[in-house]
Amino acid sequence: MAQDERAFLDHIEKGAFRLGVAEQKWRLEAIGWPHVYIGVRARDGRWFTLRFECTNYPIGLPTACLWDLERSARLAVEHWPKSRGGRVAAVFNPSWKEGTALYLPCDREAMLGHDAWPTTLPELIWRPIDGIAQYLEIVYELLNSYDYTPAAVSAP
């Protein structure tokens, strides 16, 4: 087993990840290294699957996109979480990089070219010691914020 996969498996045995599972904030759905599929529960009870690409975890930042497990494809735009115009829309933006990543400072793809983020958004910068639970906490908070509104079509 590769070192990055072993590090990931160690992290999901830690208290922060296991507590999130126990509280039904997120659930591990599948692993096909370097991809990991984790569902995150939204305020209305819907589960959104994120497909993480975790090469070089946890030193390397992961990158994640919304995923449809049944179709084995990125989640169709009509199923994406919607926003009242606040923080959710900025992160779940299907027109940014064609929906291949979330627009978050803890995401590898989003971090590219944003040298100011460690100064302007330090709380959202990837922390290898916290690992995947940090990314999930950020997404869970957004999907449970007042700005989140259900997708036009229910998530599959």
Partner: peptide
């Protein structure tokens, strides 16, 4: 190859003889 994960597999408190305690 993708392997399926039982979402409950990590909830060790389902084992009747033990209880899982999270603490800070």
């Amino acid at each position: 190859m993708t392997r399926e994960i039982n979402p409950l597999a990590l909830q060790r408190n389902l084992k009747l003889e033990n209880i899982t305690v999270f603490y800070q």
